[in-house]
Computed example of a mutant assay.
Amino acid sequence: MTGTPQVRPLQGDDPERLGSYRLIGRVGAGGMGRVYLGRTVSGRLVAVKTLLAEGEVAESDRRRFAREVALARRVTGVFTVSVLDADADGPRPWMATEYVPAPSLAELVRDGGALSPAAVRWIAAGMAEALVDLHRAEIVHRDVKPGNVLLPLTGPRLIDFGISHALDLTRTSLTLGTIAFTSPEQARGEGSTPASDVYSTGATLFHLATGRPPYEPGADAFRLLARVQQAEVSLTGLPPDVDDLIRPLLHLDPAARPTPADLLAAFERRPTGGSELLPTAWTSLIRSHHDYVPPVSPADHGSGGPGPADLKADGSRPADLKADGSRPADLKADGSRPA
């Protein structure tokens, strides 16, 4: 098990600051953007996303990023992440969002195994609420997958709206997202709708319940794409207790899939539990992310207050740390007591 988040050191082409945020390290990267772990003056941790660009940022990329910021600001639900600040017009466009110190569902399945049906239903309820919030704001995520759902013990958080599109946009010819979790209509290059997010949610939940995507293993990308286009799923191993939940989400016809509101209504009739349903391996991984201490940089010293080594991953102070950053006299710097 990996246990802690992967925060890579800043490299030569990485900025040390974006806006008022001091950057600590890289936490993710994609084809068009890079995500950093940053810190406010008061010590709060944030996620800061910026465009990857050599030289001057192309105007088309800047417009795309500005649209992403605008879409992300429209999402305010408790199962997504909030935008804290952004600058789409600066030399290097950036957006700061709430930092969620939690592993993704992809990491948890990889390192902790599949889930019980009851735990799958709990996560499904949270994902349904996230989609209700998104679709109410007339946003289609277009890339729902295990890697884009973080799981703190308070419930799943849907992240990464980098390829989300408002429903009134017309650019529908792109097939985006991970093939095994994309919808048939996206795989065919057709327009995405809220029902596309529902299909991807079904594929994600299947992955949680079985440890694999809902297609026969071993196919190359082209064969897999052909299967996804026709929703030729292989549901072998799907536990009966979640068959009624997941199978309808994977229907070829978007109109035949339940809506996120339908799912929530079903969960109201049959309430789920909470994080107590998760296996020990999962809760251990989640807690290790929450308690992760970011690496210390030279800029963190001499500030007169608690530095990164003194704060937990959510920016809070350990119980033994005083407000001025000092510790009780009978404790050592690591919080332990002298022998």
Rank of each mutant, 00 (worst) to 15 (best):
H141P: 00
Y99N: 01
K322W: 15
R157N: 07
S336C: 07
P239R: 03
P294A: 11
N148A: 08
T76V: 15
S336P: 00
P184A: 06
R67S: 06
I179D: 09
R26L: 14
L252W: 12
V100D: 01
G90V: 14
S234H: 15
A102I: 00
G202D: 03
H290Y: 10
A72K: 05
Q186W: 00
E59P: 04
L151I: 07
T193H: 03
E54T: 08
A47R: 11
V46K: 04
K49W: 05
I159D: 02
K322D: 13
G237R: 05
D85E: 10
G12N: 09
R327V: 11
R121K: 12
P217Y: 09
P146E: 10
A72V: 11
L311N: 02
G113S: 06
A118M: 13
L235V: 01
V242R: 02
E59C: 12
V100C: 09
P101R: 06
I163K: 00
W94S: 05
L278H: 07
V41C: 10
L238H: 03
L51S: 11
P338K: 13
E129C: 05
D300E: 10
P214G: 03
T178D: 04
G189Y: 01
A180Y: 02
H207K: 13
V144M: 04
E216L: 14
P308E: 09
A119H: 10
G28L: 06
P194F: 07
T178H: 07
R142C: 08
E107Q: 08
R121N: 04
I163G: 01
H301Q: 13
D160H: 05
T178Q: 03
P156Y: 06
L151S: 00
E276V: 09
A125W: 07
V78I: 15
V7R: 02
R67K: 08
P295E: 10
R39T: 15
M1G: 14
G25M: 10
P152W: 07
G25F: 08
H165I: 14
P194G: 01
V75C: 04
R26T: 12
R257L: 11
D197A: 02
R212Q: 11
R287Y: 06
S284F: 13
L108P: 03
T50I: 05
P117D: 06
A256V: 12
V27D: 03
A255N: 11
L105H: 09
G12C: 02
R73W: 04
A255K: 12
S196N: 05
A265L: 14
A265T: 12
D300R: 04
D262S: 10
V81R: 11
S164H: 01
L311I: 07
Y215E: 02
L45Y: 15
D244T: 12
R142E: 06
S326G: 07
S284Y: 14
P308F: 09
V242F: 05
D262R: 06
P117E: 07
G237S: 08
P15D: 10
V198R: 00
Q229K: 11
N148S: 08
